[in-house]
């Protein structure tokens, strides 16, 4: 009996310790960001990797999400004879929920895992220690540019996702199912308010922070083995996805 309680306590202490380490990791990354020199070229490279190279997969996901939403929405709305509301159904679910969440999940899968693997390999092959000996702070050189790039790149990807999704919805709704074009775009315009767009932007910024934070942390503290690298990558993807979904619920309930 005491054994069980002891193990529970040990588990809780480890978890809380890990949370504290994660927070300190983030704070030190931001502190190093404020200190010159600003690694401008590194930030560019990371925006290229996290943002630009994710564009294709984000556009693909967005197009099909918008199309399937229009298809599903049309069959539900037709029962009430209000197909004219299709535009607002697609636009609101895109901007408020699906855009930020799906784009963030795609970025986690594509760029987040690669981030963890890259930093993890550098840790295992002692390149991070080498940076330290060359008096280049790894926080400033490796981690901070990735944080900045995700904070800039993810909201832009989400904006592209929203626009492509709404156009995808109009492709199916207007051209395939025969909702009138004017009704579709008018209901998009009248339903969406600044509050919705603002909420979406806020969500996408938070998700960008979550992705880069979790993935960099997991890579930075990889255990010294091939297995350690594998499990670090898995943990990074699982933890950021879970945090994105839970964070989405919390943010939605706070914003409503």
């Amino acid at each position: 009996m005491t054994n069980v309680i002891e193990r529970l306590g040990a588990w809780a202490v480890t978890r809380v310790g890990e949370m504290g380490r994660m927070l300190l990791f983030l704070l030190s990354a931001f502190a190093w960001l404020a200190r010159p020199p600003l690694r401008f070229h590194q930030i560019m490279k990371q925006i290229h990797f996290i943002g630009y190279r994710s564009t294709f997969v984000v556009v693909l996901t967005a197009g099909f999400t918008g199309m399937v939403l229009a298809l599903q929405g049309y069959y539900s709305l037709r029962k009430f004879g209000s197909e004219g509301l299709l535009g607002s159904a697609v636009a609101l679910s895109m901007i408020r929920e699906l855009g930020p969440v799906l784009a963030a999940l795609m970025v986690t899968a594509r760029a987040g895992s690669a981030m963890t693997a890259e930093i993890g390999i550098m840790r295992i092959t002692e390149q991070i220690d080498a940076l330290d000996t060359m008096a280049i702070n790894p926080m400033q050189y490796l981690i901070a540019p990735k944080l900045v790039a995700a904070l800039i790149g993810v909201p832009l990807l989400v904006a592209i996702f929203d626009v492509v999704g709404i156009y995808g919805g109009s492709l199916v709704g207007v051209d395939l199912l025969g909702v009138s074009e004017g009704a579709y775009w008018n209901s998009v315009q009248s339903a969406v308010e600044w509050k919705d767009v603002y909420g979406g932007i806020l969500k996408s910024v938070s998700f960008g922070l979550i992705i880069s934070w979790v993935c960099c942390y997991k890579g930075f503290y990889t255990r010294q083995s091939a297995e350690g690298l594998g499990s670090a990558t898995t943990e990074a993807v699982v933890l950021s996805s879970v945090l994105i979904l839970v964070g989405d619920y919390i943010l939605t309930s706070l914003l409503l």
């Binding site: 943002g51 636009a91 901007i95 800039i152 904006a159 592209i160 626009v163 998009v188």
Partner: peptide
């Protein structure tokens, strides 16, 4: 390339905020 990406993203963001929002 990064400039083009940021530009397209900003255009989408502005469209969402001003035209729709």
């Amino acid at each position: 390339v990064v400039g083009v990406f940021v530009l397209i993203g900003m255009v989408c963001l502005v469209y969402l905020s001003i035209k729709l929002g």
